[in-house]
Design a protein around this nucleic acid. Structure first.
Lengths: 352, 352
DNA sequence: ACAGCCGGATAGAGCGCTCTCCCACGTGCT
DNA sequence: AGCACGTGGGAGAGCGCTCTATCCGGCTGT
């Protein structure tokens, strides 16, 4: 909480005041304001006038106290400690990733019609996790949408245990009875594999995401599986951290070991972009010499030269659906966990 | 508010319960929990045990009701309607911009030590503005940090009128008595101008941001002013929307009219990145044929090839300072508006 | 030894709202 | 005429917490 404090504003009007002005009871004013039950139109009108003249605004805390709802939902960015970088640098990394922006955008889409606002919480370290958890238990938000990066992230389990209604972006690693939205990552990787194969690429490498991230593993496995079906059981791969710089380093390493490669699949667009940059640095042409396929179809896919062929993940839609599911859980509790899996789609651009 | 609703969880423990278990009064428990005034250590201990055994968590709404503090602050992204694009597309654009991510990161830095969480609000249209405003007036957040894109944005004025403690990122267009953080944009542009001039560039063009954005105007004017001092009173410029695609279009236009240009200053890195891409598409080498200087020093500056020379705007620090100022205003109200202006810095990389 | 203090704990009055009763007054049916 | 019922409105009991005023008991000072 800290020492936050509203300035000594003059006492603002309460229901009581409005009731007095309108010459009715508190209950009636409340009814008009919340649009509940029938109230004589004439009285409604006079109440409305009283509201306007007093400049009345309902007090959220008082309302929450009795309704036991906060009218806010948490958007929790969880997992991912600061991998060696400075604390803030790691944070900037996370929030600067187009993925995060798309999630926020989608969440707004899902929440806006209901007048609910997202509270941003970062649970990247044990104490931050505790803080976030206690904030939620205090009832400051009615539920949580969790974007969890690491598979072994304890946050979903903790939230579940705390009885906080929760929806995840991405299937949980451990089998938890919790709702989620996710992408068919393996299928997406297969699309990329089939495409590279169809383009005649036979010396293909992969830049994978962190193995601790479930989506990263699924993409890698899906890709390898599909390639195996095309008769290529072994594929070199390097791991990176979903950042462009990481992608660059991985690409450089792969080039040393496999100078004759002719195709690259990266587990996200940022890394693919890094790969393209390094390939060009080495005098290789994309796509003539090396075809590159990314994943996500984020803004990074169209930002670079050439624009990336990529596997589309409809992050905004997924996030909006996540918000809708949570709202739904809150509206009628007690129903089992649901999950919505989105289908990926290949978007062919000039990098392959 | 909508129909959000907590699930029928079993009644959680209240202060009363804890008091009963510990065999003391409610007031004493409250004191222990809030760490206020002297309480006998032995009693403190037994209260703590009672808290643990009951799993007590204070109810935020009840506390807010009496303390008149929410323990949350709003981060308002204001202005910028959806310029023709779809509604969600525009939102994604805003949130995907590295600038937004850096602001969020900085806000966390400033807020974390105080256990306060940011509530994200988007005020991009009249009704959204109303919604945000009423949410704030209800006391759901104790104050607002506003990132306003357009100079004629009414939000700061409305917040001020509503008595909501406010701090702006960027000076307000109209002279309002409101605290803010900002960058010395003109000085930053001057650094860019001096640098390009020192590099011997004499046919320089500018890709400006939307004239409705104050920072964009300041950068343009500062640049022109400095160039005039170097004996170049007239410089062609094109306006764009701070996006990479916009930067590309602007660059293409400028190339048609001024095929012999040898220097480009863009009002942010995203547009600079677009400029580089288009220059290369035209077979021009950066920096040999054309030197490019961006603005912000965002992740986009180091993402492309070549990495951009740019004017550093310490967005994270600025946002953290904005949060600190707001916290300060809340802690001791009634003091006049303050402003903190940050100094830009030239970061020379390979694009110039 | 008694007034005067003071640390330590309690009682209880709200904070502003919602919501469940309950009442008064028609209306329609038997 | 009598009764059930529906409809519009009021009274008042909390929701869980903080905080002021108050009380209690033991210690000091003269």
């Amino acid at each position: 909480m800290s020492e936050a404090l509203r300035p000594a504003a003059q006492r603002s009007a309460t229901l009581e005041d409005v009731a007095r002005v309108a010459g009715v009871s508190r209950a009636t004013v409340s009814r008009v304001i919340n649009g509940i039950r029938n109230v004589d139109p004439a009285i409604q009108e006079s109440v409305r006038r009283a509201v306007a003249s007093t400049g009345y605004v309902p007090n959220g805390a008082a309302r929450s106290l009795v309704t036991r709802r906060a009218g806010a939902l948490a958007l929790v960015v969880s997992g991912s400690g600061t991998d060696g970088r400075g604390e803030e640098a790691g944070r900037t990394q996370v929030f600067t990733d187009p993925f995060f922006g798309r999630v926020v955008s989608g969440v707004f889409t899902g929440l806006r019609p209901h007048g609910v606002h997202p509270v941003l919480m970062l649970a990247d370290a044990p104490e931050a996790r505790e803080q976030a958890l206690s904030y939620l238990k205090q009832g400051n938000a009615d539920g949580a949408m969790v974007v969890s990066t690491h598979a072994d992230d304890p946050m979903p389990g903790l939230l579940l245990a705390a009885g906080v209604p929760t929806v995840l972006f991405g299937r949980p690693a451990a089998p938890l009875p919790v709702s989620c939205v996710d992408l068919a990552n393996r299928d997406g990787a297969r699309l990329a594999a089939d495409h590279l194969h169809a383009r005649g690429r036979r010396r293909v490498v992969t830049i994978a995401g962190p193995p601790a991230v479930r989506a990263a593993r699924d993409r890698l496995e899906g890709f390898h599986e599909a390639m195996a079906r095309h008769g290529m059981p072994y594929l070199p791969h390097a791991e990176a951290d979903f950042t462009q710089a990481g992608g660059e380093r991985a690409m450089a390493r792969l080039l040393v070991e496999h100078p004759d490669l002719d195709g690259v699949f990266a587990a996200n667009d940022l890394m693919a972009q890094g790969a393209v940059a390094v390939l060009r640095d080495h005098g290789l042409r994309v796509p003539e010499d090396v075809a590159v396929v990314g994943f996500d179809d984020s803004s990074a896919a169209t930002a670079g030269r050439p624009p990336l062929t990529t596997v589309r993940q409809p992050v905004e839609e997924m996030a909006a659906e996540m918000a809708r599911i949570l709202l739904d859980v809150l509206a009628r509790p007690g129903r089992g966990a649901t999950s919505v899996i989105f289908e990926p789609e290949l978007v062919v651009r000039r990098s392959s």
